[in-house]
Amino acid sequence: MKLSFLLATLLYLPTAEAKCILPSPDGGTPNVSNRNIAGLILIISDENVWINDVDRGKPILVKLSGKIEIFTAFGGGGDSWEVLNVGQSARVWLKKCKYLPHQNNFAAYFEVFSYDPSDFPPKDYFFIQGQ
């Protein structure tokens, strides 16, 4: 009886959320969290970007705050969201590194493979773990 109570108690203890570690533009950050969304940019409207997510197989809305910087997979300085174009390959880390269905998902780190939509990444680009 006591053992079953102990096991039930342990199952309902709050679990610690994994720490959200964002990439740095020029790499070198250890233990970077996995990206939350990856795919081709379909629509850009003001600070809203629709990405055809490779994991979910459907378009996902990513909200950009006015302060978000856009980086390429090759690093370098950040640019404002106006450098985004339909057809670019993108990987996005969301705030708190968590995708929330049916809610606004704000980008914390937004990476495009290249500013040129005709530059296609290697096939594993969308599936690389961490940075």
Rank of each mutant, 00 (worst) to 15 (best):
A16T: 15
V32H: 07
E47Q: 13
P14V: 10
L42D: 14
S24A: 10
G39W: 06
I41C: 03
S33F: 00
N48T: 12
L42A: 13
I21C: 02
P14H: 15
K19N: 12
L22F: 04
I37R: 01
L22T: 01
T15F: 14
C20Y: 07
E47A: 08
L42F: 09
D26A: 11
S33L: 04
I51T: 05
P30K: 04
L10G: 06
A18N: 10
W50G: 01
P23T: 07
D46W: 03
R35L: 08
I44Q: 01
G28K: 06
I21L: 02
W50Y: 12
C20A: 04
E17A: 14
D26V: 13
S33Q: 02
T9C: 14
D46V: 02
L7G: 03
C20K: 00
N34I: 07
L40H: 09
I37S: 00
N48A: 13
L13D: 10
K19T: 15
C20T: 08
P14L: 14
L22H: 04
V49M: 11
A18H: 15
G28D: 08
G39M: 02
I41D: 00
L10M: 10
T29E: 11
R35V: 05
L10K: 02
N31Y: 07
S45E: 09
G28V: 06
I41K: 00
S45V: 01
W50C: 03
I21E: 02
R35S: 06
V32R: 08
Y12P: 05
L7I: 15
G27H: 12
N48P: 03
A38R: 00
A18T: 08
W50S: 08
A38K: 00
W50E: 06
G27E: 09
I43W: 07
S4T: 10
N36A: 01
N36Q: 05
T15M: 13
Y12Q: 15
I51W: 06
N48C: 09
N31R: 06
K19R: 14
L7P: 00
N48E: 12
D46R: 11
P30N: 06
S45Y: 05
P14M: 13
P14D: 13
F5N: 11
A8L: 12
